[in-house]
């Protein structure tokens, strides 16, 4: 390798702000975790304060934004009338699509493929979360069986990810946006036999109701593992040098509905994972109470 190539490589390392360059840095973080001190001064299970707002996208049926010191996630929920599928004529639809903004790609030096991989796996997790928890009763989203149902589309936009802990932010934002979502009320039009043949969607912006069951919709908490230590709310730097992550889907009542271990480096002792799951169950109540996600509707447009 000639001098010029070395220089170019070095430059790449510097310009990839997201990536950590040195082994020493990794060692520093790992030693810190082992001694119960993290690089921003937190304890292992402490969380950073996060900022959550709802209702910021006025032309969506529900929206939220979660900011966590350099991680920024925006969610918009749109509700549309759709035709149900033949095998589930009386069930509404809940669709998740997660994308990483180009604004994130430029800053975090993410290439399109990595970003795609990340968002696809998050989409999969979101679908699993609904499937395993049955929190939202899709039958309640039916308007006219076989003819019309509500399709709830949840679009997640990751604006920034260098603050770390994107997973938790995404799922908190999804939950908050679903809390914020309102669906227009419908009146059924019946024929002379008393059978519903058509429906009328209310055009009054205040004649709406929240989605039923959102309070039980789970969130996913993310724990990092280095050695035998479990730590909550990982920073980007800590994510870079963690041995593994444990993602735990828990609902407000503490019911575990999904766990996933993502191995990043070495394998993990089974007891460590159980510790992470237990910690998640204990932590979820506090997290949801802090964000106000335990009530049925956290923020209605008219303040009710």
């Amino acid at each position: 390798m000639n001098f010029r190539q070395t220089l170019a490589k070095r430059y790449k390392q510097i310009s990839n702000k997201g990536k950590m360059a040195s082994k020493a840095e990794r060692q520093f973080i790992a030693n810190g975790i082992a001694a119960n001190i993290r690089c921003d001064g937190r304890d292992l299970l402490d969380r950073r304060p996060l900022e959550l707002e709802t209702g910021n996208i006025t032309n969506a049926n529900g929206s939220s934004r979660v900011q966590l010191m350099g991680t920024d996630v925006l969610v918009g929920v749109k509700v549309e009338v759709a035709t149900p599928t033949d095998d589930r004529p009386d069930e509404g639809m809940l669709e998740f699509s997660i994308s990483s903004s180009s604004a994130n790609a430029t800053v975090a030096a993410l290439d399109a493929r990595t970003a795609d991989k990340m968002t696809r796996s998050l989409e999969f997790l979101a679908e699993q979360l609904q499937k395993t928890s049955h929190a939202l009763d899709l039958k309640k989203l039916c308007i006219l069986p076989g003819k019309a149902v509500w399709c709830v589309r949840v679009d997640v936009l990751v604006l920034q990810s260098l603050g770390g802990n994107v997973v938790e932010c995404v799922f908190l934002a999804i939950k908050a946006a679903l809390h914020d979502t309102t669906i227009p009320n419908c009146t059924l039009i019946k024929d002379s036999n008393g059978e519903a043949v058509d429906f009328d969607i209310s055009s009054n912006a205040y004649d709406v109701s929240p989605i039923e069951g959102v309070a039980e919709f789970p969130v996913i908490l993310c724990f990092g593992i280095i050695g035998a230590r479990v730590f909550a709310d990982p920073l980007f730097e800590e994510e870079e040098c963690a041995d593994a992550f444990v993602l735990v889907g828990v609902s407000a009542s503490g019911a575990v509905c999904l766990t996933q271990q993502v191995c990043a480096g070495r394998g993990v002792d089974p007891t460590t994972i159980i510790e992470a799951v237990d910690t998640a169950r204990q932590a979820v109540k506090g997290v949801l109470e802090d964000t106000g996600c335990t009530h049925t509707s956290i923020c209605n447009a008219d303040g009710q």
């Binding site: 929206s63 925006l74 918009g76 679009d155």
Partner: peptide, 10 residues
């Protein structure tokens, strides 16, 4: 790079 969020339009 110009992008519009899926929920940005009516």
């Amino acid at each position: 790079d110009f992008e519009m969020a899926a929920f940005s339009t009516t």
